[in-house]
């Protein structure tokens, strides 16, 4: 068997699983099962949210290792489920390595993009729902929806430009703060704090901090710490952006 191909296949699987937002334990277990299915008992895999390392020792050969860096990514549950199903299939009946690599490429290429309009509608829906959820009125929800629309327009655009996490959170928070303060001053919104809290939920900083706790308690210390840093950075970015926007609006409103 060509162990180089097996190594590439398994680290590609780990890479794409991480890229689709799978948990660390799922990535490590999937790669481990795949290696075992192809008869490698001495394979090791180590993953943290932005890197995966696979190493194996083929019988009678030198150990080989491959490392893949994983760039900043979102969450794509559909792709993760597809990859999980693929991995199960490969482990149940390991095909020829070339065929397996083709199947992986086919699974990864299969993902159609959500239309932009639908995505924007989702941003509006979730931010206005959160404004109501936190106790806002219908007018607050309307303002929250507008803030969500702004976040939905700006943040994916910045992601495409390859902007870092902190800056993205800051710009998102700035847009929310600017719109929320402007709309409240114009008399459309009623509770500015509820509008802002609802609107920033689109960037989901709370999810990361819960996942950080889960990773730490499950024993994945490294990835837990990476996520904690991510959660604090996102929170600080959003708070900073909102704060700047609010003080700016107050200053302008004071002059007028």
């Amino acid at each position: 068997m060509d162990y180089d191909k097996l190594l590439t296949l398994s680290s590609d699987l780990g890479y794409y699983l991480l890229l689709s937002g799978a948990e660390i334990y799922r990535v490590e277990e999937s790669v481990q099962y795949l290696l075992n299915a192809y008869g490698v008992e001495t394979g090791e895999v180590f993953a943290i949210p932005n890197c995966v390392i696979v190493s194996l020792t083929a019988p009678g050969q030198k150990p080989i290792t491959q490392m893949r860096r994983v760039p900043g990514h979102g969450t794509d549950i559909r792709r993760m489920e597809d990859l999980n199903a693929l991995c199960r299939g490969l482990c149940a009946q390991p095909p020829d390595l070339d065929r397996a690599a083709e199947a992986l490429a086919e699974t990864v290429g299969r993902t159609p993009h959500t239309p932009v309009a639908v995505e924007l509608a989702a941003y509006v829906l979730l931010t206005s729902a959160f404004c109501l959820f936190f106790g806002g009125t219908a007018r607050d929800a309307f303002c929250g929806g507008l803030c969500g629309l702004a976040v939905g327009l700006v943040v994916p655009f910045l992601t495409r430009l390859g902007t870092n996490l902190f800056f993205k959170a800051m710009v998102g928070g700035f847009c929310c703060g600017l719109l929320a303060a402007g709309l409240t001053d114009l008399g459309v919104g009623e509770h500015i704090d509820l509008i802002i809290i609802g609107a920033i939920m689109a960037q989901a900083p709370g999810l990361v901090i819960t996942n950080f706790m889960r990773d730490i308690m499950a024993g994945d210390m490294m990835s837990g710490l990476v996520k904690l840093a991510e959660a604090l950075l996102t929170g600080a970015g959003i708070a900073l952006g909102t704060g700047v926007a609010l003080s700016l609006v107050n200053a302008v409103w004071g002059v007028l």
Partner: peptide, 18 residues
Amino acid sequence: FIPLVPGAGIYNMMDAAL
């Protein structure tokens, strides 16, 4: 989990820090 997670909490926390 999203309705449960303390998103507002982390925002308030960093806001207080700033």
